[in-house]
């Protein structure tokens, strides 16, 4: 049922890389480095301001992909891949959208495992790509069956 969704895109959503959210996120991963949180250090850095940790995009909202229904429970996070052209800057606006990249099934010890790959593209105000974020989630046969009920 996910195969038909390959190539489907969400609408674009604007998010601001908010200072407070970046600080809280950096603290939650035990990484309160001044490059993330200290304004003076940011100003003097090569970035001219603070930056966000590489896994921060997980926090950003992205548009809804029409027709994509995911189970509320039982999803397994298989892989996560980031690619950056440059770090995210605190205070900038990012326009992001998601695309269903792929869906395939593999026989596993617990039946047919489904692998769903979704990729988020984050662009700056000029439409330049800043990052991509790919998530692969694993949907087991049991979870897929439970959804159909």
């Amino acid at each position: 049922m996910y195969k038909d969704l390959i190539g489907k895109k969400s609408s674009k959503v604007k998010s601001t890389i908010e200072r407070g959210m970046v600080t809280r996120f950096a603290e939650s991963i035990g990484d309160l480095n001044p490059i993330y949180v200290d304004e003076e250090v940011g100003k003097k850095s090569r970035y001219g301001g603070n930056i966000a940790p590489p896994t921060f995009p997980r926090v950003l909202s992205s548009g809804v992909i029409e027709g994509l229904k995911l189970p509320k429970k039982g999803l397994i996070h298989g892989e996560q891949n980031y690619h950056y052209k440059r770090p995210l800057l605190v205070g900038e606006d990012i326009y992001s959208y998601s695309v269903i990249e792929d869906y395939y099934e593999k026989q596993g010890s617990n039946g047919l495992m489904g692998f769903l790959s979704t990729k988020r593209y984050g662009e700056d105000a000029n439409g330049e790509l800043v990052f991509t974020e790919e998530s692969i989630i694993i949907i087991t046969e049991t979870v897929r069956k439970a959804m159909k009920v």
Binding site: F25, G78, Y84, P87
Partner: peptide, 23 residues
Amino acid sequence: GNLAKLFTPYFEEGFIQDYQIRF
């Protein structure tokens, strides 16, 4: 997120261009 902090002290020398993880 934690693992990436090994590189945080070096963001004047470079940046994380690719970060790929399997759980």
